[in-house]
Design a protein around this nucleic acid. Sequence first.
DNA 1: ATGAAAGCGCTAACAG
DNA 2: CTGTTAGCGCTTTCAT
Lengths: 329, 329
Amino acid sequence: MSDVAHTAGVSLVTVSRAINTPDKVSPETLQRVRQAIRHLGYVPNLTAGSLASSRSNIVAAIVPTLSNLVFSETVDALAATLAHSGYQLLLGQSAYSADEEAALVDAFLGRRVDGLVLTGLSQSAALRAKLRRSGIPVVQTWDFPSSPNQNDPIDMLVGFSNIEVGRAAARHLLSRGHARLAFIGSDEERSRLRLSGFEAEAREQDAQAVEVSLIPPPVSVNDAGRILEGILARNTGVSAVFCNNDLLATGLLFTCLKNGWPVPDRMAVMGFGDLPLSRATSPGLSTIRIHHTELGKRAGKLLLSRLSGKSIARPRQNIGFRIMQRSST
Amino acid sequence: MSDVAHTAGVSLVTVSRAINTPDKVSPETLQRVRQAIRHLGYVPNLTAGSLASSRSNIVAAIVPTLSNLVFSETVDALAATLAHSGYQLLLGQSAYSADEEAALVDAFLGRRVDGLVLTGLSQSAALRAKLRRSGIPVVQTWDFPSSPNQNDPIDMLVGFSNIEVGRAAARHLLSRGHARLAFIGSDEERSRLRLSGFEAEAREQDAQAVEVSLIPPPVSVNDAGRILEGILARNTGVSAVFCNNDLLATGLLFTCLKNGWPVPDRMAVMGFGDLPLSRATSPGLSTIRIHHTELGKRAGKLLLSRLSGKSIARPRQNIGFRIMQRSST
DNA sequence: ATGAAAGCGCTAACAG
DNA sequence: CTGTTAGCGCTTTCAT
């Protein structure tokens, strides 16, 4: 930077201003500085800038995995929203592990990121306290408090109630005349919340049974088919399955088709997530739509508002969900 | 840090060493320092560390979008590989735009990232020169040079030949007895490379026609179905379609099923990418498998080797591809 | 094994 | 509009 300053015949600060606040520099000076920058191939060191200004222009996000489209599309929208305002995204994957998440948070706080986006509300009390003390804006996503057992939000929030999703799914299947239900999902926090809602609703409506299978993540397409075969072999009378993600549900749909089990007459299948691909199956997959790109966008906007010092009208947003009834139920 | 030093009764350097190179500190001192750190809730400022050491422990990656599973799974594997060695991932999305990519590179170089992963080989001469001058390790991915028209690699490379993919697809369809082919893909660099290979092979084998449709990204499930309807309406005699991504191909498969067009007898459908979901369709989707998680892993390993000063046996790796013939062709 | 001194490359605060 | 001064919070020598 001092090379640039010499070449342009100005001081260091002027170069800094020419780069960061060009309208505070006279047009002629600006031009000389820019020319010097180009001439020397100068690349400003943003790390030094961050240290001096204590703003990193980096936002971090932690998701369980990018190998699930619902999360990668959320991150896509988040990164795009932030990029418009000059923020970059530092990404961490927790693999559904609270320890990994905590370790990532430490690393990100150490980097003095300007904001943080988390998945879920289940962070430990210690972690929540640490984040509150850090003073940086935090957005939790992918859930919304509904039961008294859930933690208090750390700061901002944009999500939907997983428990209500579970309830809505049970309600839907019961209303279609099914009395014996199955739940197949991956064994992780939010899936278990949906299960708890599903079971609660089934209980309250006197459903005759709920068969539960939780698969350790990552799940694969054929898992649900395998599990359903087991359920059918036991003659449990199950006639409807709620698969806790569309990959499982679509795989199950295909299994039913292959085995000649009529959907939804022999077996009703319901998914979660509304993946682009699942929208085109035949029969159409009934599922629960989460507007996950909106979720990423709103998380980004919340952070940007806070970072630009604006007051935030609604720091805790429930974006809800929608039952997409198609032909599989 | 100086608070910690005072509390532990040592100097700044010792605290630094206790954190970064604990085996260079006596056990008793180490314990005192660690206790002070915990007691004070000290979080080391990695930005300051980066500035002083000129190592950021950050690697940046640029992909077109995370909303395509082939890329998000690659990034997943890359991030996981890097995380094992303490590197974090800074992510940029180019939206298939060379300008966006160039802007992201500038930002990342400014942050003094320790390494960079790019998608494709089509960077401008200026950008390639800038990256070479920067001296940081760069890995280009998702393509491999085969035609003399392609650019020289910047540094390291792990990919496969998109042109050869196109050729292989044409060869496969022609060998199945189809003489009039269609190509449907998104209008972007690598898809066009596959198209060029597809057309070249078709020409050399005297195929009677290749109908081409390029869709501006992002593509959606039903795009290919709509296009095929147009092709059929024109009575072109096309009997086989190469869809340049599995989302399109699977959508097309569903369209054919819905319309009662027998697959592959009336219309053969071939995809690209081998998405998890597409593996379970019925009829099974013939497609081209890219081991994209391996791609991410190798890109990460190449960077890690270089960053740890190891010599690299094969800095340019062609991981190839594989034709997965299932029932749709 | 520990410490003192000298920066890393920039921005903030103040002055003119 | 421009410049001077003083750090930001660490790590890197080089000593001891």
